Amino acid sequence: MKRNLRILAAILPLLLAACVPAVRVKGDAGLLDAQAMREQALAHADHWTLEGRLGVSDGKTGGSGSFSWTQNGEQYEFVLRGPAISGMNFRLSGGPDGASLEGLNGGPLHGSDAELLMHKALGWEVPLRDLRAWVLGLRADSGEAELSFGTNRLPSLLQQDGWTVDYRKWDESRQPPLPVVVFAGKSPYKVRLSIESWHFN
């Protein structure tokens, strides 16, 4: 019972955020130019750590947990604590030379591609390469993207590679601003990120 209350407490802010209607406008030349400037300013931001809460669902099962994500150039480490995906803690790390997934039954798994490794181990389709850009509020370089903007003139909705990325809240005290509540979905998968801290090295 206590565990269920803790999970509810963790995801309640995300559920409440989902109920707030968003005002969105298509990007005009001014909004798109401002976004291009944000993307240029963050183009080389590849040494950072973020921490927060993660909620996931595959349309049948789901859960939540705390996470940390450290990016050092092409090297990364993603640590999940809680039952969100695998029912246990796990650590995904790697870079251009391959990826390792630790914390699952049967011992560590290794592969040449992190996305394929996650799919093989957990059955999850996770757009890790695109997420690296999306979590910064940027368009990924994987293909065409469609943007809508909120009343704060920041991206509100990003559609790319079949995924819809919904930016629910931004930290506008930073320059350039950074997302702090992000929903991403591609049926049947849904991912919710509530970012509690950003640190740039």
Rank of each mutant, 00 (worst) to 15 (best):
D130M: 07
V181F: 03
G95I: 09
W198Q: 07
G73H: 06
R91K: 15
K190N: 14
G62C: 04
A84S: 11
H119S: 10
V25K: 12
N201Q: 12
V126P: 01
L128T: 14
G27F: 08
R132D: 14
W48M: 04
D33N: 14
L32K: 15
R192F: 09
A36H: 13
R24M: 12
E196Q: 13
P177F: 01
V23S: 08
L8R: 08
G107C: 13
A22H: 04
E146S: 10
P108H: 01
G143C: 06
W48N: 03
T49C: 00
L193F: 13
G52D: 02
V126L: 11
R192W: 08
D130S: 14
E74T: 05
V181W: 00
K60P: 05
V23R: 08
V182P: 09
A121M: 07
S112Q: 14
L16G: 07
G87L: 03
P21E: 11
P179N: 08
G63W: 00
L128I: 10
L117S: 08
A145S: 14
H199L: 11
D141M: 06
I85A: 03
K169C: 07
V165N: 04
N201T: 11
A36V: 07
N105Q: 10
E102Q: 14
A17W: 10
V135L: 13
H44Q: 12
Q71S: 12
D141F: 02
N89K: 07
G95M: 07
K2H: 10
K26C: 06
W124S: 01
K60A: 13
H110F: 06
I7A: 04
E115L: 01
W69G: 04
G73N: 03
W48R: 05
G55F: 11
L16K: 09
Q40R: 12
P127G: 03
R168K: 02
S93W: 11
R129Y: 03
G106V: 05
P108D: 10
A9P: 01
G87T: 11
S86D: 10
L42V: 12
T151V: 12
P177E: 00
F183Y: 13
A36W: 06
L101Y: 08
Y189Q: 03
A140D: 02
N4L: 08
P155F: 05
W48V: 02
P83T: 06
A41P: 04
D97M: 08
S66L: 11
G87H: 03
N4H: 09
S194H: 04
G103M: 04
W134G: 00
G73L: 02
P127W: 02
P155L: 00
Q40C: 02
Q175L: 05
Y189W: 13
L136H: 08
Q71V: 07
T151D: 03
V25C: 04
F78W: 10
H119D: 15
